[in-house]
Write a protein that binds this DNA or RNA. Sequence first.
DNA 1: CACCTGAGAATGAACGTTCATTCTCGTTAG
DNA 2: CTAACGAGAATGAACGTTCATTCTCAGGTG
Lengths: 215, 215
Amino acid sequence: MALAETRNGDVWGEADRRHRIIEAAERAFVRHGFHATTMQHVAAEAAMSPGNLYRYFPSKEAIVQALCARDQAERGRAFATFAQAESVIAAMAEGLRMNLLGKPREKMQMILEIWAEAARNPAIAALCGAIDADVHAGLMGLVEAAKGKGEAVADLDADFAARLMITVVVGLFKRRAHETDFDGERELSLALGIFVTLFRGGIRPFSAPDAKGAV
Amino acid sequence: MALAETRNGDVWGEADRRHRIIEAAERAFVRHGFHATTMQHVAAEAAMSPGNLYRYFPSKEAIVQALCARDQAERGRAFATFAQAESVIAAMAEGLRMNLLGKPREKMQMILEIWAEAARNPAIAALCGAIDADVHAGLMGLVEAAKGKGEAVADLDADFAARLMITVVVGLFKRRAHETDFDGERELSLALGIFVTLFRGGIRPFSAPDAKGAV
DNA sequence: CACCTGAGAATGAACGTTCATTCTCGTTAG
DNA sequence: CTAACGAGAATGAACGTTCATTCTCAGGTG
């Protein structure tokens, strides 16, 4: 099916090329940043001509969207793996280790750029929103699973816990992107420290004391 | 020759114009986003011609840097206020209320763009780094103050606490920028819930169980 | 076999647009 | 008058996109 299909069945080849372009685009975006990356850069990285990119994607924007969609799929797969883990804390540890230590800093920087883009570009915003919803749902599932295993107190509010975990992880992502002396293991133990207490039921929403007088 | 500077009292007028331009730039950046804002937009917002901007700033980049610097100064002032507050938790509540509810969403979106920019632009990175260092130092000061007032346990690691609080606040900033249904009061009580437990000594770094088997 | 044919793949120079920046010249204050 | 101020057109570079052209190669033909 590989070589013989070039005549008519180049659909295979086309998907392959689209994939190659997205990979190249990611490398280029990671290297030069989001806005500074030109189609020439992507083309060079993909080892093809600029014009030829347009045979596979109608615009630069389309490439960006495809890349975001791929990330979404990746994230979804990661959560599917989490759900099978025996210990929820261990799963969180593994997931964070993968993202805080496993990925190069530049990748985190690209995520910052995607976040910024999402604030302006409705298509990207929709993709990111879908990712976030997935993650939120996945985390709530994890919390419920943890309850079932006795790793979390029974009356833990799953939505509260999920929002808290997302907040912490997002904060770590940003810090990882910026801080040159970011210590992954140290920050990992910080996050896990929070989560352990959370699961133990030690963290509850706290209504602020009236701040009328404060400045 | 070029230094015939203080010829007149117009030095005042110049500072005034620079200030006006920065304010206009902020409005433009907030409205159109960082990269999509043109000098024409800034000029229109400042009610002057594009060319005339260059009488006061050598480049677009210089305007951006001035804006970031102003934000840094603002942040510094905010922390000076915090330090005087009677209750540390109340101070945090007030500070977060100001930033999570007081500022328009668009302002948060601009901060995301500044973060993204900082990943690529050394000058902006330096400014952001300085802000972060200020905030970190200020928070450690707050923690120590809280200890003194008996609001925090004596053996709380100030650096750990500061990093944790920064992480949470950063996470909330990002979520505020993106989530259309972001509930400021709810998230505020989430953050304060964490901080209260933290000050009580209920959160400690947690070393992850070994994750050899996981994928 | 040698040679053609044609269609999809790929090229890369050129185009048109969008800006940051500069230039020119009119206006105003002292 | 002089010098600073300011408006707005002009400039030039960068970049996404297009398109006329070239390449490749599976089949057909003799």
